[in-house]
């Protein structure tokens, strides 16, 4: 990935992430997060992970964020915006976030192998979906079945949670 494109999408991702925590209106936060996710998808595609970049757009921005916006519209959240900020929470949050960032920067700084560029990739015909599908259905077949059970139980759980009263 060219350096200029990386910095462009990285800047968009960080701006979007800041927008999520700075905007008082949840709808603006959701739209900032959509911008952030699309930039992260562009970074994935720049890392030659085409399938992952595609599902990042389809699942995160197409399904998850639409669900978020739907719930925000459903619950009328106008009153929440007038609440004053809790100063203690702001200070604790900034302290925790900065501490984490400094600690991980120190760890990354002591990893000299990471200063090298990415290795060259073999030119493949078509996309990486074929290879990825082969790995999922052979080496990771059992986890895939577990994920299927998880999705079914999550669906049943949502239906139970949304019932007005349980019998």
């Amino acid at each position: 990935m060219p350096q200029a494109l990386f910095y462009l999408f990285a800047a968009f991702a960080v701006l979007g992430a800041f927008g999520v925590i700075v905007n008082r209106n949840p709808v603006s936060s959701a739209f900032s997060l959509i911008g952030c996710f699309v930039s992260i998808a562009a970074l994935f595609i720049g890392l030659n992970a085409y399938f992952i970049g595609t599902i990042q757009v389809l699942v995160y921005t197409g399904a998850i964020m639409v669900l978020f916006l739907f719930i925000i519209m459903l619950l009328d959240l106008r009153a929440e915006e007038r609440r004053p900020l809790n100063l203690g929470a702001v200070l604790a949050g900034l302290g925790t976030g900065l501490t984490f960032l400094v600690m991980s920067s120190v760890v990354i700084g002591r990893f000299p192998e990471g200063g090298r560029g990415m290795p060259e990739l073999k030119a493949v015909a078509g996309s990486d979906v074929h290879e990825l599908g082969r790995v999922i259905f052979t080496d990771f077949n059992f986890p895939l079945q577990i994920i299927a059970v998880l999705l079914v139980s999550a669906t049943v759980g949502v239906v139970v949670l949304c019932k007005k009263e349980l019998h």
């Binding site: 970074l43 976030g97 984490f100 990354i108 700084g109 990893f111 192998e113 560029g117």
Partner: peptide
């Protein structure tokens, strides 16, 4: 060429935000 450390730092930055 973008190095691995730049991606890791961006990832840490987004996580801490």
């Amino acid at each position: 060429m973008v190095t691995l450390n730049e991606y890791l730092f961006l990832s840490a930055l987004l996580f801490s935000i």
